Computed example of a mutant assay.
Amino acid sequence: MLTVVLAGSAALTGCSLKEPVGQSGAVPAAAASSGGAAEAIVAEGPSLEGKTVGIAAKDILHDYSRVIYEQLQDDVEARGGTVIATQAEAQDSKHVTDVENLIAQRPDAIIVVLGDAQTLTPALKKVDEAGIPLFTVDFQTEYSVNNVTSDNWNVGTTLARTLAEDTGGEGKILAFNGFPGVAPCRIRYNSLQLVLEDYPGIEIIEPELQDKYEGTIEDARRQIDDQLRRIPDGEVDAIWSCWDMPLIGAAQAVDGAGREGIGLYGVDAEPGALDLIADPESSYELTVAQPTDEIAASSVSNVALFLDGREDEVSTTSYVDPIFITKENVGQVRSDLGI
């Protein structure tokens, strides 16, 4: 099968997100060869000549979504297919409309990138009823032939364990939790809650913070500024988010206020987050990169296999290796992956 197996999972069963990269800061071989793996996936498998593939992305507002959206189109065209591409500018209602418009154009397959389960599921049911094969990226649904994703349970629990260890198992944390309907965020947040059951000395400060898609960085900075004015120095030990964008604003607030001892933990390896992690003076500690080229290549490969009548070679879920980035290895990761 063209499932990208999470080869590093055994290494991640340790307690810290810092362990998979080793003490030397070396990047795992699977991570370092990410671009080559994606090229190999694109080069192999059947053509999409004469096929049309619809692509509906929730947004291209942050680097992860934008790169996948662009790479999906490139990979379909590299296989000889025709693309109908839409992106909903982070508007759930437009995302639904985009999917319904694709149905009306009768493509041979549809790929949906991210989305809110509550609002989007009825539209995906219509895709299924129309007999159009549905493929998803970071969106688990009963109507999808295949979903390509990182192992978000693995990412979420490892991220949470590292936060817990770095705080010594004691203290208070601020958590952004604005997207319970977005599967990766829901899984990562549930993983945080699960891990913290074994760290009763860590408390999530209530009320939790609500991040948003548009104006994310500035809004998060304002929220953290407000929290830091309210909460005395030394009473916040970490800030958690399921993605990097809020934490870029949070780091600006924390560093600008001169508050020490607050570590920031996120996911996606946004360029702005990597810049902060590379800064020894910044509070941003960790992020997790998801190899967008492999994600896109795997999704398009599965579409091609399915449309070629090779459904038995397409698994329900395809996983890609996460890449864990710390202050110790950020320079090496950026060099090896060109990010």
Rank of each mutant, 00 (worst) to 15 (best):
E129K: 12
V127C: 07
L120F: 00
R106F: 04
L120K: 02
L120D: 03
E129I: 00
E100T: 10
I111S: 11
D116K: 06
V113E: 14
A104D: 07
Q87Y: 14
I132P: 08
Q91T: 03
T97E: 15
I132D: 13
T97A: 15
L120H: 01
L102W: 04
L102I: 04
L102G: 04
A117W: 00
T119C: 00
Q118E: 13
T121Y: 00
G115W: 07
R106W: 01
H95Y: 04
E129Q: 15
L120V: 06
A117K: 09
K126H: 02
D108H: 12
V99G: 13
P107E: 12
F135N: 06
D108Y: 07
Q87A: 14
V112I: 15
I103A: 06
T119E: 09
I111P: 10
V113N: 11
I111R: 13
E100W: 02
N101R: 03
Q87E: 15
D108A: 11
T119N: 04
E129R: 10
N101W: 01
A117V: 01
A117C: 00
T119Y: 01
I110T: 03
V96Q: 06
A104C: 02
Q118D: 11
E129P: 00
K126P: 07
D108N: 15
G131Y: 00
I110F: 04
F135V: 06
L134D: 13
T121K: 07
